[in-house]
Design a protein around this nucleic acid. Structure first.
Lengths: 124, 124
DNA sequence: GCTCTATCTAGAGAGCTGTCAACCTAGAGG
DNA sequence: CCTCTAGGTTGACAGCTCTCTAGATAGAGC
């Protein structure tokens, strides 16, 4: 039934070839799906976008909480999802905790979805 | 199912600026999240990948069903999710139904996630 | 030490998701 | 018309998600 599936991609090393190049293995699909699921919530997308759009690249949790009509624990829950998906990282400084984007995983996803099938431009 | 979305970004026209450029509106976030949620399931990702990787770009439902250890209704349910997210389209030909990828939406998502913030290469 | 504030964790509950069995629909071919 | 097959739809149910309240933890400052 299911074809032979050595790694994430039938071919590739650790990294992920664009969607068009060849079929995902079940394991690769599960891994990618976990990340897309984290992106599949409007609050988390807005949090991510809030952080990413910020000059300096860092945002304090208190600012994020203020930007939503949600309780602290709920924001904390979403930040944890983002952390566990390796999409953001954080650091405590005194009383406050600052979050920033980890661009590597985003780049991987972007490349996977790119229907042109070209490797993403290397430069920023 | 997806409503018309005038501007996903607070500023932008119809298209979606990369994550880094500025914060998503709640409406834009809801719209994008709906699509990412559809991608957030391993079965749907594999279905998408199965179709995308196929030379000719089209796959019959019967082939998709055969590729999974799931019942017809379940595959049908996932195909519907993909259709309603505007990620695939389909056509009946006699007894069979063929599905193919709609690359526009994928390109939009890819561009949104691209942390380099460059417009995606226009592709040949 | 005590207190205040920022953040996280735990537990519970409403609602959504993915899956199935059962049934329906639409062509093909008699 | 009838029958067969490929797909889709419906309804039900287990399990997961998002949200909250209540409580824990950690640093600042007295």
């Amino acid at each position: 039934m299911l074809p032979i599936v050595p790694s994430v991609r039938a071919t590739a090393s650790g990294c992920c070839e664009p969607l068009v190049s060849e079929a995902l293995t079940p394991e690769g699909a599960a891994d990618l799906a976990r990340t897309f699921k984290v992106l599949g919530d409007p609050v988390r997308l807005r949090v991510l976008s809030l952080i990413a759009a910020r000059k300096g690249g860092e945002v304090c949790v208190c600012e994020i909480t203020d930007a939503f009509d949600l309780t602290g624990p709920t924001i904390s829950y979403h930040l944890r999802q983002l952390r566990e998906a390796d999409l953001v990282d954080c650091e405590r400084r005194g009383t406050w905790v600052y979050y920033w984007i980890k661009p590597e995983r985003l780049a991987l996803l972007s490349q996977f979805l790119d229907p042109s099938g070209q490797p993403a431009p290397v430069h920023a």
